[in-house]
């Protein structure tokens, strides 16, 4: 087991009587583009919430770089290099695109709390250096022209890009994307695919949930399929497409995405 893997072992998450994630295990290896798929309500987002500490799971273990992160608070997990985006975009709506991306620099900034009251030459240098990174990130995501625009006034597709730029500004080791193509048109989806490859080329591991099967089959190298919280299959895209249990699950759920 390489040290920078994400290893879920027998993870179970309950909401009252509902078992949202049931005894789930899988391993995301460093450098992979890994897919997590399943019909609506299968528990995919809940798995992400367990990994990122938003809804810690009661049973099982979540190992990251060899450390148990199951019960750590969200911000600690981010500091260890795991950053996520949300299925329903969660940006700082009244603020500009640049300020949103700047939020990703929070943990990279060397400023102390008291620099909020008094600046020093080194806190000013840090401030400028972080804006510099923000504008590099805006360039990477082709968002420079929107730098000063209020985020909530922008179309959906651009907001999705801003959210990814914000996550990337944290310089994660593992980027977790929850349905990054939801609400995007064909052009935007194509750009997204290219972006995912460019991110991977920076050496960042990617774990994604996606409904768009064409996208999943094209970009992911390995997949886990879940239904009703438990794993029904895993393998590379070719194997998954042939798997009768997977076809069954998707037909049964009246989900015509497949």
């Amino acid at each position: 087991m390489a040290s920078n893997d994400l290893v879920l072992t027998n993870v179970t998450k309950r909401f009252g009587g509902l078992v949202a994630v049931d005894d789930l295990s899988f391993t995301v290896q460093q450098g992979q583009i890994y897919g997590l798929i399943g019909p609506n309500g299968a528990g995919k987002t809940t798995v992400f919430n367990c990994i990122t500490g938003i809804h810690p799971c009661e049973e099982g273990s979540v190992l990251w770089c060899g450390e148990e992160i199951r019960l750590l608070p969200t911000h600690k997990i981010v500091q260890m290099g795991i950053v996520r985006t949300f299925q329903t975009i969660r940006l700082f709506g009244q603020m500009s695109v640049a300020e949103n991306v700047m939020s990703g620099r929070h943990i990279k900034s060397s400023q102390s709390w008291w620099n909020g009251i008094i600046h020093t030459p080194s806190s000013k240098r840090d401030e400028t250096a972080n804006w510099q990174v923000v504008f590099e990130m805006l360039d990477f995501f082709d968002l420079t022209e929107f730098a000063a625009s209020t985020v909530s006034s922008l179309p959906y597709g651009i907001q999705r890009r801003v959210e990814m730029a914000r996550a990337m500004a944290v310089e994660p080791k593992l980027l977790i994307l929850d349905e990054p193509a939801a609400g995007l048109n064909d052009n935007e989806t194509q750009t997204l695919i290219e972006t995912i490859y460019r991110i991977r080329d920076k050496g960042i591991t990617i774990l994604l949930i996606e409904h768009d099967m064409d996208l999943v089959m094209e970009v992911t190298e390995y997949l886990t399929v879940i239904n009703f919280g438990s794993k029904i299959a895993e393998g590379n895209p070719g194997e998954i497409q042939e798997n009768p249990a997977v076809i069954e699950a998707y037909l049964g759920s009246e989900d015509d995405d497949f």
Binding site: F86, R90, F92, S103, Q111, N115
Partner: peptide, 25 residues
């Protein structure tokens, strides 16, 4: 000074979306 610092911006972020603020660290 607060407005142009990491600490001051953090306040705006957590007001706008507490969960999202936590999710970027």
């Amino acid at each position: 000074n607060l407005e142009s610092s990491k600490a001051g911006r953090a306040l705006h972020y957590l007001r706008e979306d507490d969960l999202a603020a936590g999710s970027i660290g």
